[in-house]
Amino acid sequence: MIADQIVNGVILGSMYALVALGYTLVFGVLDKLNFAHSEVFMLGGYVGLSWFALGAPLWASVVVAFVICGLLGLFVELVSFRKFTGRDAQITASLSSLAVGIVIVDLVQKHWGSEPVSLPLPVELRTAGFTFMGVTFNWLKLGILGFTLALMAGLHVLVSRTALGRNIRAVADNPTSATLMGVDVKRVNQSTFFIASALAGVAGVLLAMRTGFATSDIGLSFGLKALAIMGIGGMGDLRGAVVGGLLVGLLEGLAFQFGLGRIADIAVWILMIFVLLVRPAGLFGNATARDVRA
């Protein structure tokens, strides 16, 4: 039983990590919180589910969610972040994106209703699996986990090995000097938003596959937890988002196992507050606030 919950926790954690990566990517590059992110993630579930219901294969539904959410990310960048540059505008941009998030939720509820919509996955796909050393493994869950890990690996390669990744790191480091080096900051911002949002959209579909339904309150519950995970891992740190996501997934899995269902729900926030008290820059952040800002 505990082993089952650990497996579940890892799968859940990998999805947290995928959403948290989007928050932290945008924060790393623009130094601003994108509050619309959790709702883009929520929308991803609905988009994938609708295409699947229309008869599209599963992989095509994932691709469609990837593209549509990525494009939505570009829109968010345009209306909520493009104009608000500089440290002064940190709050303004965040709140504008929050307003976009509210609109997304309202429109989703108007279109799909406020009750959860189920994803009609065939029974054999949901239940097929095998037992290994007394732990039940489910092919669907393993597939989700594998796919999530592959996406993270892909993101790692993109950021560390490609020209785009180099530009992203340059802007994250210092936008002014990146501009002087000839980096097109606007393009980098757009790419960042596209990648972050597209990954969130895929995470939305994967979660819908995992739970069997899409629901409009997932942005506030699941999506905002990813924000806390970013705080735990260290703002703008990709490793931190992954480690934080897995940590919280496991923690919730175990809390659930021991019948602490309600506490599991806020465990991530308690952990975040605790981590920020002990290490104000998160687990992987190393600079103290006083050193960074003059």
Partner: peptide, 22 residues
């Protein structure tokens, strides 16, 4: 929370909101 940058305080206050309801 004020020891750290403003963004962290935002996160902490969101956390407090969730914890309070529970």
């Amino acid at each position: 929370a004020l020891r750290t940058r403003g963004v962290y305080l935002i996160l902490v206050t969101i956390g407090v909101s969730f914890c309070m309801v529970v």
